[in-house]
Design a binder for these strands. Sequence first.
DNA 1: GACCCGTGGGG
DNA 2: TCCCCAAGGGT
Length: 340
Amino acid sequence: MEIWSEQTIKDFRRTLLDWYDQEGRATLPWRLNHEPYRVLVSEIMLQQTQVDTVLPYYERFMSDLPTVQDLAYAPEAQVLKLWEGLGYYSRARNLQKAARFIVDELHGHWPESADDLQELPGVGPYTSAAIASISFGEVVPAVDGNAYRVFSRLLKIDADIANTKSRKIFYDAIAPIVDISRPGDFNQAIMDLGSSFMTAKNPDSQNSPVREFNAAFRDDVEAKYPVKTKKQKPIKQMYMATISESNDKLLFEKRPDTGLLAGFWTFPLIEINSIDDIEGQQLNIKPIIHVFTHRRWEIWLVKQDVDLMPNQQYLSPDDWQRLSLPTVQHKLLKALEAFQ
DNA sequence: GACCCGTGGGG
DNA sequence: TCCCCAAGGGT
């Protein structure tokens, strides 16, 4: 691992921020100003989610709920509708809990340090540092996937970024480098660098503004970084989706309030071991495939009569269009249309 | 520390 | 088709 001199650190800050001022993504909507609410919403949406995906969601969200008070007082259903299709839905619920905590418990006074911000639900080590540096000027590194990727290459850090313990190694390595007068811009510049020249695949380090600081590129070992162990493959599961119609309504089922797609409505799903377990009128020839991070669902639509369970309800199109439905349920509805 | 939690895009 | 990736956090 490389250790930079004070002079190198100063040169790096200047080079990085000069590039950021010229070429950074200044027009991103969450960079129009540094209001903590705007930054918080953007940071939560951007967790494990690409910028292009977030943009339309962010615009709608800020338009409908422009202040932390609006979010705190909104019905949860409205928040989930604004989040529909974005995934990781506990983010939306935690975001509203955070807003309610700030409004109700802190009387609208924001926590201003990374340590205090981390008390908010859904706000962890990265997000707290991002808000503290961008909105409140705290000199603290925001260690996200971009920071891992960028600094593992610049400094040739061999720690496995899939390992929780590596976070401290990166934090300690980056902390002395963060620009003291512009910590928020420094952290955002690293993110812009990670999404332009220093990408995960096919990086363009030859033309990177910080090429001369890139030890891995200099030593022609950039492909080794970042060091990251593999994830496990999704588990395959087969399901029967019950299609039951009554007066132009369809039977839906509310999922348990914990676990995958917690509290969301889908067709009643019954796990089966093989296609031979299907009872009723099978509609589709090929299963509908939906892949989550850790699971791969293969779903068969099956028409059948059922006894209504307490967590089930017949819903009209008007009913379910008002609800926030997970993407897998939208897929099932679309597939069902083909048979009607 | 290991596992869970969505979705869409790209090679 | 399959695999990896994308501004992580909660349990």
